[in-house]
């Protein structure tokens, strides 16, 4: 996979969070093939491989996620979608190559740097883990709490209302259904207004209406300039998204990432 330059990025003004966007050719040293890329990538992979110890799961992956882009990530189960996302927020480190997040190589990040980087990345995990002893509202506001910021009660209520959890603000996470947990995880991921949103099967346990509602939220965030990556098996969701925004589809197959065709 070489380059990703999305329509959404093109349609934006030529700046993002005061970072000027520019056309670059052959951004990675040692790679002579010209690529079309936009400006400074929020996340960049350069010949990345990841090995779990039982063989290589991802191999020779090079791509850049442009600011404000929207990507779906598909592929068969066990292909490495979750691993790819974990590499995107430095939960895993590549066994070969370089992953750069906000222009910093993850190998050079201290633990504090990783923490500060994650404050700019909202992650929705497949298994949606929470602090089970805290009420849902506190869980959703957790990223603000650890960053030492207060959660305006009105904003928190609005967000919880949007994801349909306003009546469950004082419930404990173990009392929630799978779908409610997924919506809560998404709310937690976006409460700080992160630059990047990474979601791993965020609609896996949701009905179609709620899936569309969350998709709309992600699209709106993307229109605000956030970079969004959604790993999903749901082709209907991808088709729906493509009708709303200029989303691109990446497919992981045979340890590599490819741009999916228009057959989706």
């Amino acid at each position: 996979m070489e380059c990703v330059a999305t329509k959404s990025a093109i349609s934006k003004p030529l700046s993002f969070r005061n970072i000027p966007l520019r056309l670059v050719i052959g951004a990675f040293p040692g790679n002579s093939r010209p690529r079309l890329e936009w400006g400074i990538a929020v996340i960049a992979f350069e010949n990345v491989a990841y090995n779990y110890g039982g063989g290589e799961l991802l191999s020779d992956i090079s791509l850049r996620l442009a600011p404000g882009s929207f990507h779906f990530l598909t592929g068969p189960s066990g292909a490495g979608k979750t691993t790819f996302l974990k590499l995107c927020y430095a939960e895993l480190l590549p066994t070969a190559g370089h992953v750069t997040i906000f222009d910093h190589d993850v190998h050079g990040l201290t633990r504090d740097d990783v923490a500060m980087t994650r404050r700019r990345i909202g992650v929705v995990h497949q298994d949606c883990q929470f602090l089970d002893h805290l009420p849902l509202s506190a869980n959703i506001a957790l990223p603000l709490m650890v960053a030492g910021r207060a959660a305006p009660q009105g904003d928190l209520s609005d967000l919880m209302g949007w994801v349909g959890l306003d009546r469950l603000a004082h419930s404990l996470p173990p009392q929630l259904s799978g779908g409610e947990r997924q919506r809560a995880a998404l709310a937690r991921a976006i409460i700080t207004g992160p630059d990047v949103i990474l979601a791993d099967e965020p609609t896996g346990n949701l009905d179609w209406d709620m899936s569309l509602r969350l998709l709309t939220l992600l699209v709106e965030l993307n229109r605000m300039g956030k970079t969004v990556v959604v790993a999903t098996h749901d082709l209907n969701l991808i088709r729906q998204a493509k009708s709303l925004t200029a989303a691109r589809v990446l497919r992981i197959a045979k340890r590599r990432i490819q741009l999916a065709g228009a057959d989706l």
């Binding site: 633990r111 504090d112 923490a115 994650r118 995990h125 883990q129 602090l131 990223p143 650890v146 960053a147």
Partner: peptide, 16 residues
Amino acid sequence: AQVIGVLRLVGARDSY
């Protein structure tokens, strides 16, 4: 460990 994992995920520093 799960609590720590969640906290690290949302950007908590080790000192926190």
